[in-house]
Design a protein around this nucleic acid. Structure first.
Length: 299
DNA sequence: ATTTTCTCCTGCATGC
DNA sequence: TGCATGCAGGAGAAAA
C-alpha cells in the first residue's frame, strides 16, 4: 500500500521515461475511481511533460496547461511499458507518449485515480487546500507539532500523524513503526508528550522515511516498483502487521487495536500508556495485550 | 469547532 | 467445493 516512500520510489522509476515526452494519446478504460479520470485528462494530448514530482502522496506531471495528478490509493501502481503490451486487469488509464511508451495506472480497488488540475487549483484552493506540511520538509518540525499542544488539541498522537491537515506523508505503516521505535504508545495524547519525545519522534519519522525510500519502499500485498521489483523495506518492519508476535528484547507481545479506524500495533512494555490515554484506553489496550499473550501461549 | 465514523472498492482469508 | 461474510485501508465527506 503506497505511502510516501512508495510514491517517491514510483516517481523516481517513471520520471526518466516521461521527461520531455509529448502526450500522444490518453485512454480511459474505467473512470469509476475516487479521483475520476475525465475529459480534462484526455484533453492534454499534445502537451509536453516538463517535470515529474511528488506532492504529499500525489504524483504530479507538470504540463504547460497545468498538472496531471495521480494518486495510488491503497492498491495502485504505475508502469511504463510499450503501448502494444496487452493490458492487465484493472489497468484503468493509459497515457501514451510520442515514443509509443505507455504510462499505465493500475488499481484494483480504485481508491486512487488520475485527474487534471489547473495551475490555480494546484497552488492552493484545490486538492491540496487543507494539507499540512510534508513530513520530509523543514516545516514539519518539533516546534510545529508542539503548537498542537498549545492549541489544546485532544487527540492521540497517532491520529495526528495520520491526519493530512497536520502532516502529509506519514501513513499507517510509518506511524506505527516510528511510535514503536520511540517508545510512544499510539494512544498517547499530544498533550502528554514531553518536548523531547516530540523532537525525537519528528527526527525519527524523517529518518525512517528516508531509509525506506533508499530501500525502494515497503512491499505489502500490492506494491511494486515501476520496474516490477518489489520494495524491500518490509523486511525492516518491526511491528506493522505483526500482531501476536513475541519480542524477545522486551519479553512481551505485539498487540493490535483499532484507533480511529486504523490498525495500530504496539508493544505495551516498550510503549507504556501514560496520561489521559491511560484513562481512556486502558481497558482496550489491556484486552488486546492479553489476547496477544494468550494467542501465543496456545499456538 | 473539533473529533469520529462512514464511504468508496476488490482480493484475500476465514467459516460453514 | 463453493458460497457467504468480513476485513484491510487513503482520504475526504458526513455525522456526531
Amino acid at each position: 500500500m503506497p505511502e510516501l516512500p512508495e510514491v517517491e520510489t514510483t516517481v523516481n522509476g517513471i520520471k526518466p521515461h516521461l521527461l520531455e515526452r509529448i502526450i500522444k494519446e490518453v485512454k480511459i478504460h474505467n473512470n469509476k475511481c475516487r479521483l475520476v479520470p475525465d475529459a480534462k485528462v484526455s484533453n492534454q494530448i499534445g502537451q509536453k511533460i516538463k517535470s515529474v514530482f511528488r506532492r504529499a502522496k500525489y504524483i504530479c506531471l507538470e504540463l504547460d496547461s497545468g498538472f496531471i495528478v495521480i494518486h495510488l490509493g491503497m492498491s495502485g501502481n504505475l508502469k511504463v511499458v510499450n503501448k502494444d503490451i496487452p493490458l492487465l486487469k484493472h489497468d484503468h488509464v493509459e497515457i501514451i507518449l510520442d515514443n509509443d511508451q505507455d504510462l499505465r495506472y493500475n488499481d484494483h480497488r480504485r481508491f486512487g485515480g488520475v485527474v487534471f488540475i489547473s495551475k490555480e487549483e494546484f497552488q492552493d484552493n484545490g486538492l491540496f487546500a487543507h494539507n499540512g506540511p510534508d513530513a520530509l520538509s523543514d516545516d514539519f518540525n518539533a516546534k510545529y507539532l508542539l503548537s498542537y499542544q498549545q492549541k489544546k488539541v485532544q487527540r492521540p498522537i497517532k491520529q495526528l500523524l495520520m491526519d493530512n491537515a497536520v502532516v502529509v506523508g506519514v501513513g499507517n505503516i510509518y506511524a506505527n513503526e516510528s511510535l514503536f521505535a520511540c517508545g510512544i504508545n499510539p494512544c498517547t495524547y499530544i498533550q502528554d508528550l514531553h518536548n523531547e519525545q516530540i523532537s525525537i519522534l519528528v527526527d525519527y519519522i524523517k529518518e525512517l522515511l528516508l531509509r525506506s525510500i533508499a530501500a525502494g519502499g515497503t512491499t505489502l500485498r500490492d506494491f511494486e516498483q515501476p520496474d516490477g521489483k518489489p520494495g524491500y523495506f518490509v523486511q525492516q518492519l518491526q511491528v506493522y502487521g505483526k500482531e501476536n508476535e513475541y519480542l524477545v528484547d522486551y519479553d512481551d507481545y505485539i498487540a493490535r487495536i483499532t484507533l480511529g479506524g486504523r490498525s495500530s500495533f504496539f508493544c505495551l512494555t516498550k510503549q507504556p500508556l501514560i496520561g489521559k490515554a491511560k484513562t481512556k484506553y486502558e481497558i482496550m489496550v489491556n484486552d488486546a495485550v492479553g489476547k496477544a499473550r494468550a494467542s501465543i501461549k496456545y499456538k
